[in-house]
Design a protein around this nucleic acid. Structure first.
Lengths: 150, 150
DNA sequence: CTGTGTTAGTCCGGAATCTGGACTCACTGT
DNA sequence: ACAGTGAGTCCAGATTCCGGACTAACACAG
């Protein structure tokens, strides 16, 4: 009868981070998405450029289509051929991909510099930064705090 | 003898995203980091609030310490007790965590609204956005392109 | 000093997943 | 007729994951 009291605050948080990771929190899933961002929507090419086992890639792609991040479109009728495209939700993952890349560039760059440079349409080399929409200041952990709701 | 020609462009990309995911590209690892950001550095608490198997959490924490994302500090001598803290590199993961959370808030919010609201020190509810450091414009995938280096 | 808690793990065995490689099927282009 | 491509599937062995039980070392209550 005490079980409930004991388990108060004992269960995992409800959390958007956890929920998101449930869907894309796996190397091959995110690398598949990276490939599509880079313009590679074909199965074989994705396997080649990511290094994922074909089997695993097939499974991940099915899941990503299932959760509405990718869309599988036929681009050739007779030899039936397909290509994966980003949905709206998929495109929204760009910031995730970029922040991961940024972290890797900073903390894991090899001797040859960063592996991939992106250019923004403004003409500069892209270096993206997370800012508060309200005040425009860069966001750092120490300057935010959780708000109690319930 | 043709093997080399055939394999040209056939190997996985070198990529900061892939490298980063090699380290934090796993649910429990990132959720452990989330907990530390939220001020929870104790093992038991982390297990409780993430829902990870204790075993797995122990393994992840070892790895995160090994790669320099967390630091294990003793906070009590006699009953030897430890707490995990973020290193500089760990703190740099904040944007990754935030963009994941933002995506989840937008695409997976339940009926009760988003599970966790953060407040920026500017007083507003935090809604973070990725902008180009050069021009200040929000970054969208279509407005960036890879630059050929090698 | 006995019993109950707390913290930080470890140990275990079965279940689920991952992996690389071979294989398929339906074409196409030479 | 033969090699090639694209999109997978199948397989068996290796690896990881998972939940639950267990340990050790103390603190505090009664």
């Amino acid at each position: 009868m005490l079980a409930d009291m004991v388990s108060v605050s004992a269960r995992p948080r409800e959390c958007s981070i956890a929920r998101t990771l449930e869907i894309v929190g796996e190397k091959w899933a995110l690398l598949a998405v990276r490939e599509v961002f880079l313009g590679n929507g074909r199965f074989d090419e994705m396997v080649r450029r990511t290094g994922a086992p074909r089997d695993t890639m097939a499974t991940r792609l099915r899941a990503l289509v299932g959760t509405g991040i990718l869309e599988r479109r036929q681009y050739s009728e007779h030899p039936a051929r397909f290509e994966y495209h980003l949905t709206e939700a998929g495109r929204d993952l760009y910031p995730v991909i970029l922040t991961l890349m940024h972290w890797g560039d900073k903390h894991l760059a090899g001797p040859g510099g960063v592996p991939l440079v992106l250019e923004h349409r403004c003409g500069h080399r892209l270096s993206a930064e997370l800012v508060c929409q309200a005040c425009g200041e860069p966001v750092v952990a120490e300057q935010t705090r959780p708000v109690r709701t319930r």
